[in-house]
Computed example of a mutant assay.
Amino acid sequence: MKKLVLNTVAISVLLGSGLAVAQTEPLIGVTIYQYDDNFMNLMLSEINKESANFKDVRFLMNDSQNSQAIQNNQIDILLAKKVKVLAVNLVDPPAAKTVIAKAKKHNVPVIFFNKDPGAKLLASYNHAYYVGSSPKNSALEQAKLIAKHWNANKQFDLNQDGKIQFAMLTGQPDSTAAEVRSKYVIEELHNLGIQTEALFVDTAMWNGNMARDRMELWLNDTKGKQIEMVIANNDAMALGALESLSAQNKQLPVFGIDALPETLTLIKTGKITATVLNDGAYQSKVLVELARNLALGKNAAEGMPWKPENNSILSPDIAIDKDNVEQYRK
């Protein structure tokens, strides 16, 4: 009888220790503002691909369906599941303060990616990070591309007044990236000696379908025929604008940011003029590596070729047009 009791205890201990081993695999909670977004869908695929290389951590992926309420609920559930790290692609950038408060309360590191919460908020929590690109640098590169093609193609100046009459499609109104990209692309054009006139400027919320509809309204406006160029805060909106232009058999120079695969193909064929590389593949790789290090209790950049600067890791912004597009097409 004693032997039976001992054996039972031994089995329980073994099972218990086996269960403990299974439960010690650190969890990393990831929320993406919307899977149904061209660029974020690309990042989702890359995150899944990169995370598959590691068996010592597990990534829990969540689609926030473009709802901050859903994202907040997902974060609460992930924290209840005792995730070691949160990785958040914000739905609404102002919600970063709430997300940091939740992470702080549980002493969990949080990595914001793609949507920058701003330096002030990052500095408010020692364990907050940002992985993405610099919206200012991407705007400066976009301006250089516009200047290059404007100066080389005199036919772009439809009314020959030496000034770009443009339509601009912007991202979310409360987005730092949208605000910075919109501001600095025009400022840099002026610094480069190019005059501009804004005919239409409005948000399309980073969305291609909304951009298509917005562009259609503008083209049918009394000032529609005066548009000489389309400047978009991202490629999804540039593609939406192109769809509307094509439907009206109209061809104008269109500039985006992101370097989505379909954009690169259209640059090669001459339908899109240029874009700026926002390297989602690199950002996804850094995100996975950073999250894994933090989840395993390591220093953020331990064993990595990149180093955080002010708790941010930024990918380079590279201008792409027909001259170099083949280097970036896969």
Results as ranks from 00 to 15, higher is better:
residue 229 M to Q: 06
residue 18 G to W: 05
residue 273 T to H: 00
residue 63 D to F: 04
residue 269 T to E: 15
residue 275 T to C: 09
residue 265 T to F: 02
residue 283 Q to C: 08
residue 273 T to C: 01
residue 111 I to F: 08
residue 68 Q to E: 11
residue 307 K to N: 13
residue 1 M to T: 11
residue 52 A to L: 09
residue 60 L to E: 04
residue 72 N to Y: 11
residue 187 E to I: 13
residue 261 P to E: 09
residue 58 R to F: 09
residue 85 V to S: 12
residue 120 K to V: 09
residue 10 A to I: 12
residue 24 T to C: 15
residue 3 K to D: 05
residue 299 N to P: 00
residue 202 D to K: 13
residue 300 A to R: 11
residue 327 Q to I: 04
residue 180 V to Y: 13
residue 194 I to C: 01
residue 176 T to S: 13
residue 230 V to A: 04
residue 80 A to I: 05
residue 99 V to H: 02
residue 171 G to M: 12
residue 121 L to M: 02
residue 224 G to Y: 10
residue 13 V to R: 03
residue 142 Q to N: 11
residue 44 L to G: 01
residue 325 V to T: 12
residue 266 L to H: 06
residue 182 S to N: 08
residue 95 A to F: 09
residue 133 S to Q: 06
residue 255 F to S: 06
residue 326 E to F: 05
residue 153 N to F: 01
residue 317 D to M: 15
residue 3 K to Q: 05
residue 254 V to C: 05
residue 308 P to E: 14
residue 8 T to G: 12
residue 217 L to K: 15
residue 252 L to H: 07
residue 257 I to V: 13
residue 198 A to W: 05
residue 125 Y to S: 01
residue 75 I to Q: 08
residue 322 K to P: 01
residue 164 I to V: 14
residue 291 A to L: 04
residue 274 A to M: 00
residue 82 K to Y: 08
residue 303 G to E: 02
residue 116 D to C: 02
residue 78 L to D: 11
residue 322 K to F: 11
residue 38 N to V: 09
residue 248 Q to A: 14
residue 299 N to M: 09
residue 82 K to Q: 14
residue 131 V to R: 00
residue 130 Y to V: 02
residue 203 T to R: 02
residue 65 Q to S: 03
residue 313 I to T: 06
residue 105 K to Y: 15
residue 224 G to E: 04
residue 97 K to E: 12
residue 173 P to I: 15
residue 195 Q to D: 14
residue 62 N to V: 00
residue 325 V to P: 09
residue 277 L to Y: 10
residue 125 Y to R: 08
residue 117 P to H: 07
residue 63 D to I: 02
residue 329 R to N: 14
residue 302 E to R: 03
residue 101 A to N: 15
residue 113 F to D: 04
residue 25 E to K: 13
residue 196 T to I: 11
residue 240 G to D: 09
residue 315 S to P: 06
residue 280 G to P: 06
residue 262 E to D: 15
residue 41 N to E: 10
residue 188 E to H: 08
residue 230 V to W: 08
residue 158 L to K: 13
residue 43 M to G: 02
residue 286 V to C: 01
residue 134 S to K: 04
residue 142 Q to G: 03
residue 258 D to T: 08
residue 255 F to L: 05
residue 298 K to M: 04
residue 197 E to W: 07
residue 71 Q to V: 07
residue 59 F to P: 08
residue 295 A to F: 11
residue 71 Q to A: 01
residue 229 M to I: 06
residue 89 N to Y: 03
residue 231 I to V: 15
residue 167 A to W: 13
residue 118 G to H: 03
residue 301 A to H: 09
residue 122 L to Q: 06
residue 172 Q to N: 12
residue 229 M to C: 14
residue 316 P to N: 09
residue 81 K to P: 00
residue 76 D to H: 12
residue 300 A to Q: 15
residue 88 V to G: 14
residue 89 N to A: 04
residue 159 N to R: 01
residue 263 T to C: 07
residue 41 N to T: 11
residue 324 N to R: 01
residue 145 L to K: 02
residue 203 T to Y: 01
residue 20 A to Q: 10
residue 64 S to H: 07
residue 249 N to L: 13
residue 67 S to K: 04
residue 190 H to Q: 09
residue 60 L to S: 07
residue 165 Q to E: 12
residue 131 V to A: 11
residue 250 K to I: 12
residue 11 I to A: 08
residue 171 G to Y: 08
residue 53 N to L: 13
residue 21 V to Q: 09
residue 276 V to R: 04
residue 130 Y to A: 03
residue 288 V to S: 06
residue 277 L to K: 12
residue 291 A to P: 12
residue 287 L to C: 11
residue 178 A to D: 00
